Simulated scan of single mutants.
Amino acid sequence: MDVVYQQLIRSTLFKLGGGDPEIAHTRTIAGLTRLAKVRPAVSVLRRYFGTSKTVRAFGVDFPGVVGLAAGMDKDGHALRAWPALGFGFVEVGTVTQHPQPGNPKPRLFRLTDSEAIVNRMGFNNAGADALASRLRATGPVGVPLGISIGKSKVTPVDEAVEDYRHSLRALHEFGDYFAINVSSPNTPGLRGLQDRAALDVLVSELRKESTKPLLVKIAPDLTDDAIAEVLQVCADHRVDGIIATNTTLSREGLAPSDVETGEEAGGLSGRPLAERARDVVAFVHKESGLPVIGVGGIFDADGALRMLDAGATLVQLYTGFIYEGPPLVRRINRAVAAR
């Protein structure tokens, strides 16, 4: 299966649209949406890819530790397909109050030799109300559903609370947990919401609105002192967990052949982020004891196990899944189950 994906499926996807990653992404989601409607195929695939083991975190039972990170299926088009590929949970979004097209194209770039991606998508999504309608029509997914919420670009930073509050209210009945995304580098002013005073107000108000678990997603570029301040806010307002990490503005670790493309504006994800993501997970685990979803640079079973050993309760895939495909999910599931 690994060879089939690497030599046939990935090769074909990477050539779509003249090598445009966004075209490949769009067509992949469309294909998985069609697959999700073929129930016999979904059943066969789910048995093949399996799950790892049941884990309970922030009051939710997860049938496997491997989840799909936000950004892959923002608007929830292919929700029933992801469990068939072995994912134990799925996170949709990041979704905003207002529908928005995102940043101008091109905005997604592969750095193949570095096994990385630079994106400046800018929370392109159909809006929280549209997602609520789709989730209502879709019904239960079969695994826990996380929903990542962020700030609309048109919303001033000083009105961010109401923007997040609208999305949380619109989607509250559907999510098993909610991720408060204050760490994307692609929406002007958003990362400023990680500052202690701003985050304190935002989390306090969202905590009043939600009976579901709330998690805060943080950037890998924060210093330890800044992370400690985030953790103090989380403790003050009974935040249920942390997602570590989002994409990075750093370009360390790129292959020489990728340096020029790496100069594109946006957040970097993929293998170069692995060590920093593990370090942040370890720091959060040590300093807070909160459940952590570890994400960043996981490309093989060993990378997932190292993330779990660093203190993560669950892990998520995005760029690793693009480069390694569904076989990566199966390898991680088997490795975790064998422990």
Score class of each variant (00 low, 15 high):
V4Y: 13
Y5L: 02
L8E: 13
K15M: 14
K15D: 06
L16K: 11
P21G: 05
P21D: 08
I29R: 11
K37T: 14
V38I: 14
R39S: 14
R39L: 05
A41G: 01
A41R: 02
S43V: 15
V44S: 05
R46L: 00
F49N: 12
K53N: 10
T54Y: 03
V55Q: 13
F58W: 12
V60Y: 01
D61T: 13
D61W: 03
P63Y: 07
V65Q: 04
V66P: 10
A70Q: 07
A70M: 08
D75R: 14
R80N: 11
P83E: 05
P83R: 06
A84H: 13
G86K: 02
G86H: 06
F89E: 00
G93N: 08
T94I: 08
T96C: 02
Q97A: 12
G102M: 11
G102L: 09
P104N: 03
F109L: 03
F109C: 03
R110K: 07
T112H: 07
T112V: 10
V118Y: 02
A126I: 08
D129R: 08
R134I: 09
V143Y: 10
L145D: 02
I147E: 00
I147Q: 01
S148Y: 05
K151N: 02
S152N: 03
D158W: 00
E159N: 04
E159W: 03
A160W: 01
A160T: 02
V161F: 04
D163P: 11
R165S: 15
Y177M: 11
N181D: 08
T187H: 10
A197G: 03
D200G: 04
R207P: 04
K208N: 03
E209Q: 12
S210P: 01
S210A: 14
L215P: 08
P220D: 05
D224E: 12
A226K: 07
A226Q: 15
A226F: 11
A228G: 15
A235V: 12
V239K: 01
D240T: 07
I242V: 15
I243K: 03
T247C: 07
L249E: 04
A255L: 00
P256V: 08
E260S: 15
T261H: 02
G262E: 09
E263M: 12
G266Y: 15
S269G: 15
P272S: 06
P272V: 04
P272M: 09
E275Y: 04
R278H: 01
V281P: 00
V281E: 00
A282G: 01
K286M: 03
L290Y: 13
L290I: 05
L290Q: 14
P291W: 05
G296N: 05
G296H: 03
D300C: 13
A312E: 02
V315L: 04
L317S: 07
Y318P: 05
Y318D: 03
Y323V: 09
Y323T: 10
R331I: 01
N333P: 03
R334D: 09
